[in-house]
Computed example of a mutant assay.
Amino acid sequence: MQNNETQKIKTVPDNYTSITPWIKSPSSANLILFSQGAFNAEEIPNSRIINEEGKLIHAVVSKGNAFVMLFDAREDRAPTPAFLNL
Protein backbone atom coordinates (compact mmCIF):
# COMPACT_ATOMS: atom_id res chain seq x y z
CA MET A 1 0.00 0.00 0.00
CA GLN A 2 1.36 3.40 -0.97
CA ASN A 3 0.96 6.53 1.13
CA ASN A 4 -0.01 9.46 -1.08
CA GLU A 5 0.71 12.05 1.59
CA THR A 6 3.64 14.28 0.80
CA GLN A 7 6.32 14.06 3.45
CA LYS A 8 7.32 17.42 4.81
CA ILE A 9 11.02 18.18 4.75
CA LYS A 10 12.33 20.08 7.75
CA THR A 11 13.95 23.14 6.18
CA VAL A 12 15.17 24.62 9.48
CA PRO A 13 17.06 22.20 11.76
CA ASP A 14 16.07 22.00 15.43
CA ASN A 15 17.38 24.94 17.49
CA TYR A 16 18.32 26.98 14.40
CA THR A 17 16.70 30.25 13.40
CA SER A 18 15.17 30.79 9.97
CA ILE A 19 18.30 32.68 8.86
CA THR A 20 21.74 31.35 9.79
CA PRO A 21 25.02 33.18 9.00
CA TRP A 22 27.57 31.11 7.13
CA ILE A 23 31.20 32.27 6.95
CA LYS A 24 33.80 31.06 4.44
CA SER A 25 37.27 31.91 5.79
CA PRO A 26 40.89 30.98 5.10
CA SER A 27 40.93 28.97 8.36
CA SER A 28 37.70 28.02 10.09
CA ALA A 29 39.71 26.40 12.90
CA ASN A 30 41.36 29.77 13.62
CA LEU A 31 38.00 31.54 13.34
CA ILE A 32 36.55 29.13 15.90
CA LEU A 33 39.40 29.93 18.30
CA PHE A 34 38.94 33.66 17.70
CA SER A 35 35.16 33.41 18.25
CA GLN A 36 35.67 31.48 21.47
CA GLY A 37 38.11 34.07 22.84
CA ALA A 38 36.45 37.24 21.57
CA PHE A 39 32.77 36.33 21.94
CA ASN A 40 32.77 33.36 24.30
CA ALA A 41 31.25 31.31 21.48
CA GLU A 42 30.98 27.56 21.84
CA GLU A 43 31.78 25.04 19.14
CA ILE A 44 28.93 22.60 18.63
CA PRO A 45 30.29 19.13 19.48
CA ASN A 46 30.77 16.82 16.50
CA SER A 47 29.95 19.57 14.00
CA ARG A 48 33.40 19.55 12.34
CA ILE A 49 33.62 17.77 9.03
CA ILE A 50 37.06 17.58 7.40
CA ASN A 51 37.45 16.49 3.77
CA GLU A 52 40.19 14.26 2.34
CA GLU A 53 42.30 17.36 1.58
CA GLY A 54 42.26 18.36 5.25
CA LYS A 55 39.93 21.32 4.67
CA LEU A 56 37.22 22.01 7.18
CA ILE A 57 34.02 21.81 5.13
CA HIS A 58 31.53 22.30 7.97
CA ALA A 59 31.55 23.44 11.58
CA VAL A 60 29.11 25.30 13.79
CA VAL A 61 29.64 27.68 16.69
CA SER A 62 26.96 29.15 18.92
CA LYS A 63 26.61 32.31 20.96
CA GLY A 64 23.47 32.50 23.03
CA ASN A 65 20.65 31.23 20.83
CA ALA A 66 22.46 32.03 17.56
CA PHE A 67 24.39 29.60 15.38
CA VAL A 68 27.08 30.45 12.82
CA MET A 69 28.13 27.86 10.25
CA LEU A 70 31.76 27.90 9.06
CA PHE A 71 33.80 26.36 6.28
CA ASP A 72 37.26 26.82 4.79
CA ALA A 73 37.77 28.72 1.55
CA ARG A 74 39.47 26.89 -1.30
CA GLU A 75 41.73 28.11 -4.07
CA ASP A 76 38.82 28.23 -6.52
CA ARG A 77 36.45 29.76 -3.94
CA ALA A 78 37.71 32.90 -2.25
CA PRO A 79 36.91 33.76 1.38
CA THR A 80 33.77 35.84 1.86
CA PRO A 81 32.59 37.75 4.93
CA ALA A 82 29.32 35.81 5.17
CA PHE A 83 26.45 34.07 3.45
CA LEU A 84 22.96 33.75 4.84
CA ASN A 85 21.44 30.28 4.87
CA LEU A 86 17.70 30.83 4.39
Results as ranks from 00 to 15, higher is better:
33 L>Y: 06
8 K>T: 10
4 N>D: 07
54 G>A: 05
36 Q>T: 14
37 G>M: 07
63 K>E: 03
83 F>N: 15
73 A>C: 00
15 N>R: 11
6 T>W: 06
32 I>N: 01
25 S>R: 11
31 L>D: 08
36 Q>L: 04
2 Q>E: 10
75 E>W: 04
40 N>K: 15
56 L>N: 00
60 V>Y: 03
80 T>V: 07
71 F>Q: 13
7 Q>L: 03
5 E>S: 01
29 A>T: 14
35 S>Q: 07
47 S>A: 06
81 P>L: 07
27 S>G: 11
70 L>Q: 05
59 A>R: 06
56 L>A: 02
16 Y>D: 06
27 S>H: 09
51 N>Q: 05
38 A>W: 07
16 Y>A: 06
80 T>K: 14
9 I>S: 11
10 K>N: 00
14 D>T: 00
66 A>V: 07
26 P>S: 12
36 Q>M: 12
28 S>H: 09
82 A>G: 08
48 R>Q: 14
15 N>G: 09
74 R>A: 08
76 D>Q: 01
34 F>W: 12
75 E>Q: 04
23 I>P: 15
68 V>C: 08
77 R>S: 05
17 T>V: 03
78 A>V: 10
76 D>T: 13
68 V>I: 15
41 A>Y: 03
25 S>G: 07
43 E>W: 09
19 I>C: 09
24 K>N: 13
71 F>W: 12
36 Q>N: 06
64 G>R: 04
77 R>H: 15
58 H>Q: 11
22 W>L: 13
46 N>I: 04
84 L>A: 13
17 T>D: 07
24 K>D: 04
77 R>E: 14
46 N>K: 14
2 Q>P: 07
47 S>E: 14
4 N>G: 01
28 S>L: 08
81 P>T: 02
58 H>I: 06
84 L>T: 11
26 P>R: 08
19 I>A: 03
81 P>W: 12
80 T>N: 11
9 I>G: 09
27 S>T: 04
20 T>Y: 06
17 T>S: 01
45 P>N: 08
65 N>P: 08
13 P>D: 02
34 F>T: 06
17 T>W: 03
51 N>F: 12
48 R>T: 02
81 P>S: 06
26 P>F: 08
